[in-house]
Design a protein around this nucleic acid. Structure first.
Lengths: 290, 290
DNA sequence: TCAAAAGTGTTGGACCTACACCCATGT
DNA sequence: ACATGGGTGTAGGTCCAACACTTTTGA
């Protein structure tokens, strides 16, 4: 990009202080997958999805739980800000991340107008992180409603999102509306009630939705598992995220290409040992897109 | 979201002027599909993809072409700002839109730090719009490079994006890098050279990519066509976007559910008349997701 | 008559679903 | 011995690529 002489002259005179600007922040929604307790020597532990929340120390929403985030300054890109924020606030340095969505509603922050760029983060870290707690994620559908017209339809879904750990249980209700009339599709997620700060529950919902959608055609799930895993662990991970049961034989065939067998096996369990696998980093090497 | 008393007190004292903030803008990338010229009475016109650009009237980048955009103020959401901008600047009121990506590099705007939320817009409008011109979009791959390691691979692709109309031809070269090592996937789009303002060519590339990806599993393509169309038109639309030829019989079967036959037929062509179809607004009514 | 597009039918193969079945282990 | 998970095989169906073929029109 060249800058013309006319541009140079303009830039010397330019001052951006005359415009009233919103603040810009980033928010990071961090997920992991952990084993549920299991005391049967035969049974394998089931997995559960967890999200990381901090208790807010300062207003607004003091004492309420929120995902982590920070305002951006002029010296860092969005991505850099996000990485620094995660490192400084919770001590996490290696993780999967992708930009999720930018939220810009007018009243999302009571202080002032804040536009927030949200990021989806996944980690396989099993240790506790600083400055916050992991919450189990449970999604429950309360109702579904489909109305048909001859020029389209509308769907409305009410879901309850329960975030809980041993001490705390946070319930939120979201209403998802899809209207579809002659190509005018509108999708709207409305917070009916929440026990989280800001619109953070909406961000968490978006994030879960993104993970689900990407499960089918990417290797995103592997970011939630340790480097070595059994195929049953992997399958369980998919099942938890999709909320369905999968058939074992078929699952093994489907993920065959994404995975490389190791010459290691589990032991110490009351059943046949299982082979350990790792992610195949070359699985989509020959994909010609982007 | 309740606001506590402590919060209320805090809010009265709060001033956001002490932080240095970036500016926030939205940018709208508008596409349409039009017929190429065709003088053979037998042949059907081929479609081509076009993007809408304006010539910048003010610095920076005066006189250069850019996609439309505007800074956001405190009284409108991102979405509202985008819709107003499109209406006021080019006179378009009905269109498909979705949020594309938020760009936050430090030097993307020479005036000051600007975070820009980009939107992908599609229209079937065949009329000219105000304050700008339509440019044919041609994407050409210059080179592909795959390196394999035993812990992953990296792919590098160089593409040339040519935006042209009868008077102007704008060429840009982009380098797309994908690195994949042990779950650390990084994707990076770098502008090698461009004749457009800002990083707008990058946004256009992201937008084209999004359309391509959504073609397969959504009805996004219908937003580029008039309400009534023939299946060959629809197929041609897919072909232009994907850059490949499709088999007629198979295509008809695949999109069968997305489409409703009308009792109308084309005529005036040196071949069998073709039935007109419209979009089936209920095609994914029973999809249980989101 | 003929070139071009509209539209249907068929065949072989790839893949998916569902289920049955055997293997290996620690207690 | 046995409950539990690990792992393989297979029959039936669905879907898709490829290609052949018929129909209809305006000049």
């Amino acid at each position: 990009m060249e800058i013309s002489n006319q541009d140079k002259k303009f830039l010397e005179l330019y001052s951006d202080s005359e415009y009233q600007k919103p603040s810009v922040s980033i928010d990071a929604i961090i997920f992991r997958m952990v084993d549920k307790d299991c005391n049967n020597y035969r049974k394998l532990p089931q997995k559960k999805l967890q999200v990381f929340l901090t208790k807010r120390k300062y207003p607004p929403f003091v004492g309420q739980y929120a995902i982590i985030g920070t305002f951006i300054d002029l010296n860092h890109t969005l991505n850099e800000t996000m990485k620094l924020c995660v490192k400084n606030k919770v001590g996490l340095e290696k993780f999967y991340n992708e930009q999720l969505f930018t939220f810009g509603e007018k009243q999302r922050d009571p202080r002032t107008r804040v536009v927030s760029v949200s990021y989806l983060l996944l980690t396989s870290a099993q240790e506790e992180l600083e400055n916050g707690e992991w919450f189990d994620v449970d999604l429950e559908r309360l109702s579904t409603n489909i109305s048909s017209f001859n020029d389209g339809y509308s769907r409305e879904k009410t879901v309850k999102l329960i975030l809980s750990n041993s001490e705390t249980k946070l319930e939120s209700i979201l209403k998802i509306k899809i209207e579809n009339k002659e190509l005018e599709t509108t999708k709207d997620v409305e917070i009916v009630s929440t026990e989280l700060a800001f619109d953070h529950i909406k961000m968490i919902y978006y994030a879960i939705d993104r993970i689900k959608n990407k499960l089918e055609y990417t290797d995103i799930a592997f970011n939630l598992l340790p480097k070595k895993f059994t195929l049953t662990e992997l399958k369980n991970c998919y099942e938890v995220l999709l909320g369905t049961k999968l058939l074992d034989a078929n699952f093994r065939r489907k993920i065959n290409g994404l995975v490389l067998p190791l010459n290691e096996f589990t032991s110490d369990k009351g059943h046949r040992p299982s082979q350990l696998f790792k992610h195949n980093p070359n699985w989509d090497k020959d994909n010609d897109e982007l």
